[in-house]
Simulated assay, not measured.
Amino acid sequence: MSPLVTIILPCYNAAALLPDTLASLSTQTFADFECIAIDDGSSDATRALLDAHAAIDPRFSIVSRENRGLIATLNEAIALSRGEWIARMDADDIAHPERLGRQLAALQASGADVCGVGVRFFGERDGLWLPPTSDAAIKAALLFNPPFAHPGAMVRASVFKQHGYDSAASHAEDYALWCALAKGGARFVGIAAPLLDYRIHPGQITQTKTAAMAQTAAAVRLDYARHALPADWADADKVRFAELAASDRALDRSDWFTFTAWLVTLAQADPATRDAFTTVWLDALIRTRGVDWRCKKRFSALSRALPPPAEERGKWQRQRVRVLAGDAVYGLIKRLRVRA
C-alpha cells in the first residue's frame, strides 16, 4: 500500500548535519510516510549515514549516484514518489514532530494544493519567519519573494508531478514553482507557526549564490507581476513595481512613496491580501536612503493601515526612531551604541 506522504530529501555532502535531520523525520507524530533520500554524488559520509538510518527505519529509501544538481535531484525524487502528498525537506534543517500532521490537516481542511509553514532560523542568524495563511494573501506575497521556506512545503503530488522544477530557474527554483502554480490556479494555505528549524550556515546555496538567485528571482517576479497585478495597470507600472519590490534594490524617498502607495491601493482593492503587505512596506523603508521627517506622515498611515505582525515589532520600533530622527542623527545614534 502506498504511503499518504512522500518526503523528498536531497543530500549533498551533508554528513555533518544530516543525523539531526533524519531523527526529526523518524520522530514525526504522523507516521504514514516514505522518505526518498537522494545522495547527489557526495564525497563525504552522507551515503553511509543514509544507509545506516534506512537500516533502522524502513520508511527511508536511498538513491545514490553521480552529482546532477539540486533541481535534477528534486525532479527525480518527485518521479519516484508514491504518496498523495509530497513534503520537501533539506538535509540541514530540523522538522518539528507535528509538522507533517499539521500540514495534512490544513490541506485537507482548506482543500488547498500547497501548504507552507513558519520557520525559526538558527545557526549564524536567529529569527522567525511566518507565512500568510490565506490563498489570496500568499498569492499577493508572491509579488515580492517566496512567502514560505522551500524545505517546509507540502504539495499535492499530482500538482508536483505535472509541473516539477524548472531547470532554467536555478537558485530560485522554489519561487519559480510557486509562481507557476499560482498562475495555473493552484490553491495555497499557510500555517503561521514555526514547524521547521531552518539552519543558516555559510555553505548553503542561499548564502553562496546570492547574485545568481537575485537575477533569476527578478525575472520570475516580473513575469508574475504582469500576471497578478490588476489588469488596468499600465505595463510600465507593473515593471516598475517589480523593480521596486526586489529586496536587494536600494530605494530613495520618492521610490518608497510610490511603492507604498501601490501597496495600499492593492490592499484596499482586496482586503484578503492585506497580510501580504504588512512587512513589505517596512522592509522597503529599511532599504530606502534619505529617510527623514518627510516620511513621518506616511509611516504613521502605513502603521495604521498595514500594521506589522508582533514578530516584527522590534524592526518597526527601530524604523520609527529612524523616521523621527532622520538618517543623519539615526546613524550617529547607531555609531554611539556600537562604541558603548
Rank of each mutant, 00 (worst) to 15 (best):
I205Q: 08
A234K: 07
I191D: 07
G185V: 09
A225T: 03
H150A: 15
A242G: 06
V264L: 14
L251K: 08
W178M: 13
D166W: 06
T216W: 05
Y198M: 01
L222N: 09
H150R: 15
A211H: 07
D252P: 04
L244G: 02
W262A: 06
T260Y: 10
D223H: 04
A218V: 12
A245D: 01
R226V: 08
T206E: 03
Y224I: 03
W233A: 01
R249Y: 04
A169Q: 06
P230S: 12
A182M: 13
L195M: 00
D174F: 10
D197P: 00
T208F: 08
D232E: 14
G152V: 04
K238T: 08
N145W: 08
Q162K: 10
L244P: 04
W256T: 11
F160A: 12
H227R: 01
L251T: 09
D237V: 05
R221D: 02
A149D: 13
P151G: 02
T216P: 06
A219E: 14
W256C: 06
A218K: 13
L142M: 07
P230H: 13
A231D: 13
I191L: 11
S167V: 10
N145I: 04
Y165S: 05
A186N: 09
G190H: 00
P146G: 06
A169L: 05
H150I: 14
R156V: 02
A192Q: 11
K183R: 10
A193G: 02
M213E: 05
T208G: 01
F188G: 06
F188S: 10
L229P: 03
D232A: 15
I205F: 07
H163T: 15
S170G: 08
R156M: 03
R187A: 11
V239L: 07
V239G: 03
L181D: 00
A157H: 13
I200D: 10
